[in-house]
Design a protein around this nucleic acid. Structure first.
Lengths: 337, 337
DNA sequence: TCCCTCCGTGCAATCGTTACCACAACGAAT
DNA sequence: ATTCGTTGTGGTAACGATTGCACGGAGGGA
């Protein structure tokens, strides 16, 4: 049996109510009582039962994170890790814990969220998803349950989201290459259906158009968030009659594949081809040459998401629904000759 | 207001007790009642309040995962991710959720665990740690609270742990190199104070001794779980008068650094130097040459840990305290000429 | 026909905490 | 001296579920 508020009350010679008031720092408790009760609590190693507390206060102080389903998970590795660190940091600062959940199928996922929400297991939900999870969003929206999406949701414009400006990020990356004198710039994309792919592609197009440069559809190759994609894309692009001299690549991991392939074919980076990636993976500092990359601030995304969700839970007003985390172009050897 | 057991009871024309019994599949409830109540529950979208349920049953159906502190976190990236996937999979199968927590300092960490344990926020705890967390272990042991350690704990031989046999894994890796005809084999280690480093080093030594080969202390280099370590270790080893022809490297990420360095100096893998790494990171398949690596089954570690903890919580007997997950040597181009 | 058993269900206490209301004690104002 | 407001504290009813006990009714054996 663990020690309850009654045990503390008995030992301190007061009523449970008084102990409760000491815990919640009620103003009208005498200094001596506060001291005595506090001492007893420490002596007994008392910690309030979160279940009982939650039952009456209708709050668990737990934030639920819904992970992407396994299939999409692979490329999320580093991104997810950083986001989670940010979430944890901010949640802990505000005395929240993090519960993670995932479903194996779409309906399963919805069931899980329903259980968490209706069963009052969490106070708010974070949707960490690459693909759109419309049924989930619809459910949460309808239930008026606090939630925040990491990423974008085109179908529900008024739910709070935390994201980075992928259009601008890709635009900056492309401009950087243009400023280095490139005029034939290619793009290696992820799956088209992902908004992250769409947005980065749009930013790439925007930068080229602004500079009055040609956009050749031949120079745009689609794939997965895998090294193979980079490898394949590279061989496609390098066999073109008029091939690009620089590439914007959807993710560093894909860029590694490109570098690997170029290496094998005897091309050298940055002399023959310049590269810019995304996500600034730790390893990008140590490739040869080091990879220029757009750091999208995954940690800060997590941090801001937790902060935003906590605000929503507290019913504090948000001055903006769509929060954008600033990115940072980290220029390294792969893009400057 | 959310829908409670009373709402269901009223609408179904029964008492709350009956509804509760339907939920817990009590045998002595008539078939018709079960059907009617079940239907009403679905109509109303009822999900039992986990707080109230937990309060009376004294169980939360939540497993707490204590993460390593930030400083140690870096190298854990992929390993952690895989372990978490395994934990989630098994936890979900048994209707448990996963709560993750971390502390910023050691005392903070202990405070967090105390809060989770004493406050009955979780039913059991998983210690995911590289460094030993003795105060935590001591506290949990003393509280007789269900917990499982991922990794090893030399100071508390009778707490359940899930781990891989790092000694055997390193031994296998080293033997593989010996079988390839190498006699001068080096070892690039992680921090000495980590048991994983110690164990792998021991396995390396064991294999060499069994083969009657010399172990030169010059061939053992210590570092971090970073590419730089590999890079530095490589330059140290290659400048020795009598240098090794093969290396066992504590982690794939470090091996990448070694490969990078060898490349720069004009050496080639596997012709000049053969390499074996650990953890079988996804990228190891795509390096040039692909990296031979010991897959330690991180996913299974997570899976088995959750399974074990759930058994401990249910007070089921464990037939063994120390569970070893089998490893698998994945031979690729970096170790065969 | 009576009694016993078993089935299906309801009642009420309980889990540990919070929050509202009440109330005693005391000093200050009338 | 009476009234009033303030301060510090206790009593008690929730919160939403579970569970042991009780009880009415049906069925079977004597």
């Amino acid at each position: 049996m663990s020690v309850t508020i009654k045990d503390v009350a008995k030992k301190a010679g007061v009523s449970p109510s008084t102990v409760s008031r000491v815990i919640s720092k009620h103003p009208r408790i005498s200094k001596e009582t506060v001291e005595r009760v506090t001492r007893v609590m420490e002596e007994l190693g008392y910690h309030p039962n979160s279940l009982a507390k939650g039952l009456v206060s209708k709050a668990t102080r737990i934030l639920g994170v819904i992970l992407p389903r396994p299939a999409e998970e692979l490329f999320q590795n580093y991104f997810f890790h950083e986001v989670l660190r940010g979430l944890l940091a901010q949640a802990n600062r505000s005395d929240y814990d993090i519960l993670i959940a995932s479903g194996t199928s779409e309906s399963d996922e919805l069931e899980t969220v329903k259980r968490l929400v209706r069963g009052r297991r969490v106070d708010g939900v974070i949707l960490l998803s690459s693909k759109m999870k419309d049924p989930l969003i619809a459910f949460l929206n309808e239930s008026r349950f606090p939630f925040v999406i990491i990423g974008r949701s085109q179908d529900f414009p008024d739910v709070p989201t935390v994201d980075n400006d992928n259009v601008q990020a890709a635009c900056d990356a492309t401009r950087h290459l243009i400023n280095q004198g490139h005029v034939r710039i290619g793009f290696v994309s992820g799956p088209r259906e992902l908004t992250v792919s769409q947005d980065r592609l749009a930013g790439y197009r925007k930068a080229l158009q602004e500079a009055g440069l040609e956009v050749s559809e031949d120079w745009i190759v689609e794939g997965e968030f895998l090294q193979e994609t980079g490898y394949r894309a590279m061989s496609v692009l390098m066999s073109l009659p008029e091939r690009p001299t620089a590439l914007v690549v959807i993710d560093d991991i894909v860029a590694y594949g490109v570098m690997h392939g170029l290496n094998e074919l005897g091309y050298s980076v940055p002399q023959d081809i310049c590269l810019v990636g995304f996500n600034n993976l730790p390893m990008s500092e140590h490739t040869s040459p080091p990879l220029t990359s757009v750091d999208i601030g995954a940690y800060q995304i997590g941090y801001m998401t937790a902060q935003t969700l906590i605000k929503v839970i507290a019913k504090e007003p948000l001055h903006q629904n769509r929060i954008l985390i600033p990115h940072r172009l980290v220029v390294r050897g792969s893009s400057v000759k």
